[in-house]
Amino acid sequence: MKKDLFNGVVKYTAAGFMLGVLLIIIGLGLSYAHGFKGSWFHIFQFAPNFVIIIFSPIFLSLLSYFIGVKTEQLLLSNREIKESLVLQQINNSAADIQLKLLAKVVAQVNESIVISNGRGLVEWINDGFTKNCGYTLEEVKGKVLDDILHGPLTDKKVAKSILEKLLRGEAITEELLIYHKDGSTIWLALSIKPICDDTGEIVNFIAIQNNITDRKLREISIESLYKEVSEYKFALDQSAIVIIFNNTGKIIHVNRKFCEINEMAEEELLGKDYRAISISMRNKTVVKNIMTNLQDAKIWKGELINRNSNGTSYAADTTIVPLLDARGKLHKFLVIQQDITERKELEIELMTNKNKLQQAMQIAKLGSWEKS
């Protein structure tokens, strides 16, 4: 552009200079027509303004230079304006195309998109909102969504927290249970952002809502199952000894009751070979019988003798459950035991008393026979 400006100015300057030269030639011609045939002095006699004409190339060159500069600047400015307008039209056209494309995308996404004004009144919703919540634009326009979507099971504390944060101009991300038009409950993941003007005043809210009902139901189900398992575990820990050992016989989990009966801390027991505690498991015949069942993925039940850290033995009614990995291979064993030492001692005592009674009866019969 600068080169074009320079070339244009040079052309105007050259034209002015040529015009000045032409005036000199015309002046000379006029002087000659009036009888100029002598010295230069006669030029001023027949053409008194010829001095001015002599300097006219300079004057006209300067004048044409300034005219050329202004003209070229004006042309350049007009050219820039035209280019700017063309570029703006191209940008506007591209922006229109992008807006139309964006409108199509926004209208067809599964997520709900809601635009409301600074007072929280709905101005626009997409088709995703209608699919997720059941309401059309005509049904919600100019209304506050909280009055439509919230119900008895909606968490009032979460809803209040969302409102307070938005009024402070904070963007929020929350999960909230709301009500569908048909009365059913659904879970939405909410992402709401306030839009402010140049003065900082909130003029709009843009909300993106994602239906996460399936995920929340799974989470609630898993949480309920975890709670149930925790309760079973608590009940089991209160009444039974629980040990888990791996394929090599190393203990990888024990419960509190097992630690108490063995008078050892959990850290001392983890990694220890289970056979170091179970006397019965040192018997190859017993181990073979147990492992035969377990390797066939069968549960083994029986009585084992364990020994705690102070050397005291105790009898344990034992159930060993084989645990399979995702590929169906044995990788851990769950042991559930009940301390039956007192019962075994009572059985032994009863057996001893029974034997004594039988002996006494035999002696009594023998005495009766001798007497007769």
Rank of each mutant, 00 (worst) to 15 (best):
K3V: 08
V10Y: 12
Y12L: 01
I25H: 05
I25Y: 14
I25G: 11
G27V: 01
G27W: 03
L28P: 00
L30R: 15
H34A: 05
F36G: 15
F46D: 04
A47I: 12
I52N: 14
F59C: 02
L60S: 06
L63D: 03
G68E: 08
L75G: 00
L75H: 04
I81F: 05
K82R: 12
E83I: 06
S84D: 02
L85C: 01
Q89W: 08
D96Y: 15
K100C: 00
L101W: 14
E111K: 12
V114A: 07
S116Q: 09
N126G: 07
N132Q: 11
C133F: 10
C133T: 06
V140A: 04
G142N: 04
G142C: 02
D146T: 15
V158S: 13
A159G: 00
S161A: 15
L163G: 01
E164P: 00
R168E: 15
R168L: 13
L177R: 15
L177D: 04
Y179G: 00
K181T: 06
D182C: 04
G183A: 01
G183F: 03
I186H: 11
A189Q: 15
K193T: 14
I195Q: 10
D197V: 01
D198G: 01
T199H: 06
N204W: 11
I212F: 08
D214H: 13
R215G: 00
R215S: 12
R218M: 13
K227G: 07
I241C: 07
F245R: 08
K250W: 08
N262G: 03
E268Y: 05
R282E: 07
T285R: 10
N293T: 06
L294P: 03
D296W: 03
W300M: 02
G302L: 05
E303A: 02
S313H: 12
Y314V: 01
T318N: 03
L334C: 04
L334S: 06
I348H: 04
L350E: 09
M361Q: 12
Q362Y: 11
I363N: 14
L366C: 02
E370C: 03
S372H: 13
